[in-house]
Amino acid sequence: MEAHYIDAVLKGNANAFGYFIRTYQNQAFSLAVSLVKREADAKDVVQDSFIAAYSSLGNFRKDAKFSTWFYRIVVNTALQFLKRQKRRSEVVSDYAITDDEKTAVNSALAQLRQEDLKRLVVTVLKKIPPKEAMVLQLYYIDDQNIAEIMEITAFSNSHVKVLLHRGRTAFYKHMESEDIKKPY
């Protein structure tokens, strides 16, 4: 299916690229927001990523997964954006969280309505440093496994695991400071 649209684009039918935009724009947008935080900036990142993907579609290996290849472009574009903005990745304090605290947060989250949970997760992800938030987004929301995250981010296995651990701990710590019961 995707190969058909790729061929059409490579033959000069730019409108066939609309298929990829419609299919991947929302996930790409969420991924970009996790890194750049502001939605307007994330839209710019997604737009630039699609244009970069269009220009380098000729280099795409058809045996690879388009989504992985494209999300890597999104991640690189967002990281370049952060670099241009001189927004350094904040150093995460080494939070410590006990099992009891985690259980308390988990059970409070489990009782939230889906929409409230969504809003709360968005709020908390904005407070977590870019790379940690990106890995959380890919792992928990986009349902990518560690190997896929490694491919998308070009980070090593241990780096992804460290980011995931730090992100998760930061997520719980920020959740604790949120008033989970209030309607979001």
Binding site: I21, Q25, N26, E39, N106
Partner: peptide, 19 residues
């Protein structure tokens, strides 16, 4: 807990602008 969330943000439509 987060399993049920498939889309965190309001859907965007950037197709026209990008094309």
């Amino acid at each position: 807990i987060l399993n049920g969330i498939d889309q965190l943000h309001t859907p965007v439509d950037l197709e026209g602008a990008i094309l």
